[in-house]
Design a protein around this nucleic acid. Structure first.
Length: 800
RNA sequence: GCUCUCGUGGUGGAAUUGGCAGACACGAUGGAUUUAGGAUCCAUUGCGAAAGCGUGCAGGUUCAAGUCCUGUCGAGAGCACCA
């Protein structure tokens, strides 16, 4: 059978759509399987091969589950708010709505042409009013529950995009969208209190099945640390200085203190501090440095001693100096530290540079060379002397601090509250009204969605205010509480808002009374398997887990953790081994591949090319290899006769069913396909197979290359879709061989192989091995020290 | 700098988790077919003439190490002075 893939593939795509083969049903009596892939941002460039790989994994799993009788929800949608569309709209003077619709139409066409088995009746678009109504609704619930607050603070600001960015969006001091240097700017910012959920997000990781590196990244991001808060008395002023430390055991070694340049204690004591001008100048210098510069200069410590105020070490009563330095951040802990140069590398560098005393309090290092951060016996520490472990010393010190009433245990997180507003047009308007009498008031629930007003000019203002601020009819309103003239908030939500709950909407996407019905949520949640990119592990996933935990706490969803399992696909690199990019000219367009080789080949190739989780370069020749494989499949019906099979081939079928079934579950799609290739080679060598065997082969291949499988299935006289046929079962007994070849080693070196029965005893196997000529040659005249037989594996004879 | 992951043929990658290293595929070489090219089919393909040697390098544990341990070099990812 030679076939024209273009005709055949579009034929089956049409039939699937007409018969609604892949629509999830609301038959809640069936076992469910909810497979989720990260919905795409509909960029103007269209689909990328990376999308194909990202979706093909769970595509295979979903198709297998349907064949196993599950009610499968495998949805798709579009995460369409965001800067690229808005920037394009500004540049071309087209409304972002029009741009978005066009891009979504293009993506839809492309996705359908690859034959993904998405449930197209549940498509969502985060920019639709019927969708963002509920994004705003959830925000309002958070507002009602005290999880939203506004503060004027120094924030990460991108001067190019003219927006405030969250910490997550400004990693490395660069804007996540345009890669410009971030500056620190004082602005009014809306925050979501994600830190309140830090422990829940951390604990939740214990009950989910995420890849280990994904869990680790989330743990590091949340960055919980246990330590102590301690109050240091000051000389020269009335205040106390509160610090956070994880090493209160080293307090006898604290020979100075450091506070952040912005620490409020400086402002408060301007009149007392003798060198205030010098401190002001230093502070100004620090603010001029971008975050990037600050991190580049980690080696070179700078700072200024505060003249006029000293601190008292509460452990030993000694007076110690206080410095300001930018290696202490206002945003973590209390913005002040006790510095223990003998046992902290940063404090050590600082002390060396400023000539401060270094007192060793833990044995084990050499303080002439550097700080010692390991464990050891406590010395020079009064009541701690002689204690051998860090834990014991910390406990003892905490007890001391409690007795004196100057300190207590404390917990800190690296994660900060989520800066949630953007000064942009193409996002969900924040449903808040500023009233001169009532302060911040939520837009009433019945008025949601708060619609994005029509606008001609989408450019943000020079002062960094939202384009919405220019529309008086939008801004001016009445306070819902007191009726007084009031003003609307004009900032919009960040790109991450819509994607924080989209998997809930898929459960019941057309509901206009609730974001999803309780019954549908109860049935479909949690997501059984979520696959996506590593780049979303610390942002999208943390954000959406936070929203979900919140919804769970207010009784809106039935489970606390939204994703039972999470995997991640590796990148597809360009043929040159570099990351694909337009500037390098190494981008592969998936639709070109479909045109030349067909969708089945594209699908097989992205899964066969290598380990699913690893980055793998594109290889055009290897694509042709996959084409060859499918061409050989197409001619299989020519040799499928009704005649009996052989026991060997039958056994191979059972083994292959077992291997393909388990490999799909383990995301080892490459070896699953390799197993099918091996079986095909065996069939070709033999020259024939039965029609029943061919049907099994087609079913196994169907999740990977469904179009050609449907075509062959139909040619065999089947009336129904192979996509809905039953997944093949295997007989464990038939996967086992009666006789197997095992290796024979002498002193661990392979000498020969022998055929033994699986039931053979150690004595039988060894006897057989010792009859082998090559083995005899190796052991002749030598003394046998030890004989090992691992059933089914190996014989090893140790001789001297 | 810290944390994590990974180093296997000419290439992408396998290896039931300590048990015959190199499955499967690409590429290459030779042959068949063809006017020719392409496509297809057959054979060979880790290195070495061979005994042997081979999983970045150096040690170690073990009857047995790609797999475990120690050190070291290299690549990638994440974090970025987190007290």
């Amino acid at each position: 059978m030679k076939y024209d893939f273009n005709t055949v593939e579009t034929k089956w795509q049409k039939k699937w759509e007409e018969a609604k083969v892949f629509n999830a049903t609301e038959d809640h009596s069936k076992p469910k399987f909810y497979a989720l892939v990260e919905f795409p941002y509909p960029s103007g460039a269209g689909m990328h091969v990376g999308h194909i790989k990202a979706y093909s994994g769970l595509e295979v799993v979903s198709r297998k589950r349907r064949m196993q009788g599950y009610n499968v929800l495998f949805p798709i949608g579009f995460d369409a708010f965001g800067l690229p569309t808005e920037n394009y709209a500004i540049k071309t003077n087209t409304h972002p709505r029009i741009v978005t619709d066009k891009n979504i139409a293009n993506f839809t066409k492309q996705l359908k042409r690859v034959g993904f088995s998405f449930d197209w009746s549940r498509v969502i678009d985060t920019t639709e009013e019927g969708y963002y109504k509920w994004t705003q609704w959830i925000f309002r619930k958070m507002f009602d529950n005290g999880l939203v607050f506004r503060a004027k603070t120094l924030v990460n600001y991108c001067p190019n995009c003219k927006v405030v960015l969250s910490n997550e969006d400004s990693q490395g001091g660069k804007c996540d969208v345009c890669h410009s240097d971030i500056i620190q700017k004082s602005k009014d910012v809306w925050y979501l209190r994600i830190t309140e959920y830090a422990d829940k997000l951390l604990d939740g990781l214990n009950k989910v099945d995420y890849l280990p590196n994904i869990k680790l990244q989330q743990q590091n991001w949340i960055g919980r640390s246990e330590g102590a808060f301690v109050n240091f008395k000051l000389t020269g002023c009335e205040d106390e200085l509160r610090i956070y430390t994880t090493r209160c055991d080293t307090m006898f070694g604290a020979t100075f203190m450091v506070i952040a340049p912005e620490h409020p204690i400086i402002e408060k004591n301007r009149n007392i501090i003798k060198n205030i001008d010098e401190l002001d100048r230093y502070k100004e210098e620090c603010q001029k440095k971008t975050e990037f510069e600050r991190t580049q200069l980690t080696k070179d410590k700078t700072g200024v001693r505060i003249d006029g105020i000293n601190a008292v070490n509460p452990a030993n009563g000694k007076e110690i100096p206080i410095y300001i330095s930018d290696y202490v951040m206002m945003g973590y802990g209390t913005g002040a530290i006790m510095a223990v140069p003998a046992h902290d590398e940063r404090d050590y560098e600082f002390a060396k540079k400023f000539g401060i005393d270094i007192i060793e309090v833990i044995k084990g290092g050499n303080i002439d060379e550097g700080a010692y951060t390991g464990d050891g016996e406590m010395i020079n520490s009064d009541f701690l002397n002689g204690i051998k472990t860090k834990k014991e010393a910390i406990d003892r010190m905490l007890k001391y601090l409690a007795e004196k009433g100057i300190g207590e245990k404390g917990i800190q997180y690296k994660m900060k509250d989520w800066a949630f507003n953007r000064q942009r047009y193409w996002g969900e308007p924040i449903p808040i009204i500023h009233c001169p009498n009532c302060g911040m008031v939520g837009v009433p629930y019945e008025e949601l969605p708060l619609k994005l007003p029509e606008l001609k000019n989408f450019e943000p203002g020079e002062g960094g205010e939202s384009p919405l601020a220019k529309i008086d009819s939008f801004v001016n309103c009445k306070c819902p509480k007191c009726g007084h003239d009031a003003k609307r908030e004009t900032d919009t939500m960040p790109q991450w808002a819509g994607s924080s709950w989209y998997f809930l909407r898929y459960c019941d996407p057309h509901n206009d009374k609730e974001f999803a019905s309780k019954e549908s949520l109860k049935y479909w949640l949690p997501v059984d398997w979520y696959n996506g990119g590593m780049e979303h592990v610390t942002r999208h996933m943390i954000y959406s887990r936070f929203w979900h935990h919140f919804l769970y706490d207010i009784g809106e969803v039935p489970v606390d953790e939204p994703y039972a399992k999470r995997t991640a696909q590796g990148l597809i690199l360009g043929p040159d081994g570099d990351k694909m990019s337009k500037s390098k000219g190494n981008v592969v367009d998936p639709l070109d591949v479909v045109k030349e080789y067909g969708a089945d080949v594209l699908r097989i190739y992205v899964l066969f090319m290598g380990d699913y989780a690893s980055a793998t370069p594109w290889n055009e020749s290897s694509v042709r290899g996959c084409k060859r494989f499918l061409d050989r499949i197409a001619s299989l019906p020519d040799i499928a006769h009704g005649n009996g099979s052989t026991p060997e081939l039958e056994s191979s079928f059972h083994k292959t069913i077992k291997k393909v079934s388990s490999d799909i579950e383990d995301t080892k799609y490459n070896t699953a396909i390799a197993a099918l290739m091996t079986l095909l080679n065996e069939i070709t060598d033999k020259g024939s197979l039965t029609v029943d065997e061919l049907k099994i082969f087609i079913k196994l291949l169907c999740p990977f290359a469904p179009h050609i499988c449907e075509e062959i299935w139909e040619s065999l006289g089947e009336k129904n879709f192979v996509s809905l046929a039953s997944w093949p079962e295997y007989d464990e007994e038939k996967t086992k061989d009666n006789e197997i070849e095992i290796a024979v080693q002498v002193n661990g070196k392979l000498k020969s192989t022998i055929m033994v029965s699986v039931e053979a005893s150690a004595a039988d196997a060894l006897e057989l091995a010792k009859k082998d000529e090559k083995v005899i040659a190796s052991i002749e005249g030598k003394h046998i020290v030890k004989e090992i037989y691992i059933p089914g594996r190996i014989v090893n004879i140790v001789v001297k």
